[in-house]
Write a protein that binds this DNA or RNA. Sequence first.
DNA 1: GGCAATTTTGCCTGTTGGGCAAGTGCCTGG
DNA 2: CCAGGCACTTGCCCAACAGGCAAAATTGCC
Lengths: 199, 199
Amino acid sequence: MTQGLRERKRAATAQALAEAAFGLAKERGLDGFVIDEVAELAGYSRRTFANHYPCKEAAVASVAYAGIEAAADALEDVSDGRPLLDAVEVVLRLQLTTAGLSRMREVLALARAHPSLEPHVYHVQHRMRLEVEERVAAVAAGRYPASYLTLLVGAVYGMVSTALEGLVDVRLPGDPPSRDAVEFDEFLTEVFNHLRTGF
Amino acid sequence: MTQGLRERKRAATAQALAEAAFGLAKERGLDGFVIDEVAELAGYSRRTFANHYPCKEAAVASVAYAGIEAAADALEDVSDGRPLLDAVEVVLRLQLTTAGLSRMREVLALARAHPSLEPHVYHVQHRMRLEVEERVAAVAAGRYPASYLTLLVGAVYGMVSTALEGLVDVRLPGDPPSRDAVEFDEFLTEVFNHLRTGF
DNA sequence: GGCAATTTTGCCTGTTGGGCAAGTGCCTGG
DNA sequence: CCAGGCACTTGCCCAACAGGCAAAATTGCC
């Protein structure tokens, strides 16, 4: 998992910088601050910021990244014998209802106001997808052909990102009640229904 | 379609700049040139480049964008009465086997060598997805619930982008024959089989 | 405890983004 | 059909920025 103090500290530095950048972006907008302020707020030098991120946008977007280690471990426990799609559903519910979904939506909201952020947001989403695919493949190794796995993950990804975009009006746990929005649980049920039975 | 000389000229300028940037990037790598050279090559000023693109990367990535107007028009012709998924399949085959798929793959190859390009590539892909969804929604308006459409497009997008990544080794028409690669046609057949019958 | 590897930092320079204002050419209403 | 408005290009300008280099600090390994 976490190999060595060194790497953990490096990650902590990156995260502190990202959090600082994200905070400033929420408070003042993406153009309302400069890198020096981010660095100062996080307690590092501007030069160190540049060692971790190529630009403000990348730092801000990176806070939307939610590790999937916990979910991936759960996947291993859950996947014995039962159909892969079932296992994926269990884990996805776990991951999406607990972890940093709201962060992702905050960042997406920022990106609407500041289009220069968009590329970096979709980059983060893409990296998360790759990570999921890798872990699913590890668990399902041998039981399914590779193409089946990529297609499955691709389909799940496409549908979930749809919800995160707000293309579908979904109410996450913790959101204020709304009469229009679909509950996230129900949305996932619909997603997996389609995945199971086809379109 | 093309409304007014003004917009067409603007688009032409942007495209000329993008082509110049893409050419230089292929020739010298992403770090082998500066914006001034792009502008000069395209016959514009550095300031004009900045009016169209925020950075080199965005310009290079933009050449991967393939308009879907033709396919969208085809969708309207094809979709009368028959199941939406069939119509989408017909059009997707048309679009993906004819249009700028190879451009996308060239750009993805560049992005592997120059990670700073990645965010912009995924941004382009995302914009294409939105455009597809919009057109599909227009054609299918009323016949299907909105959530069905977004889920369908999301799933298609996820699966196809998977192929583009080279996550699945797919052979496009025009590629040299290979014994490992799946033919693109067969790949699409598999994709739509899964979409029809579920996982 | 000490050596090698890695990270942080300051300094520096060429590159970049974007505001402003002038010139030029589309475009729409009358 | 043409006059006035509006958008695009461009030059000038400057603050912000990326990233090379080398010194100092920190950690991992023995």
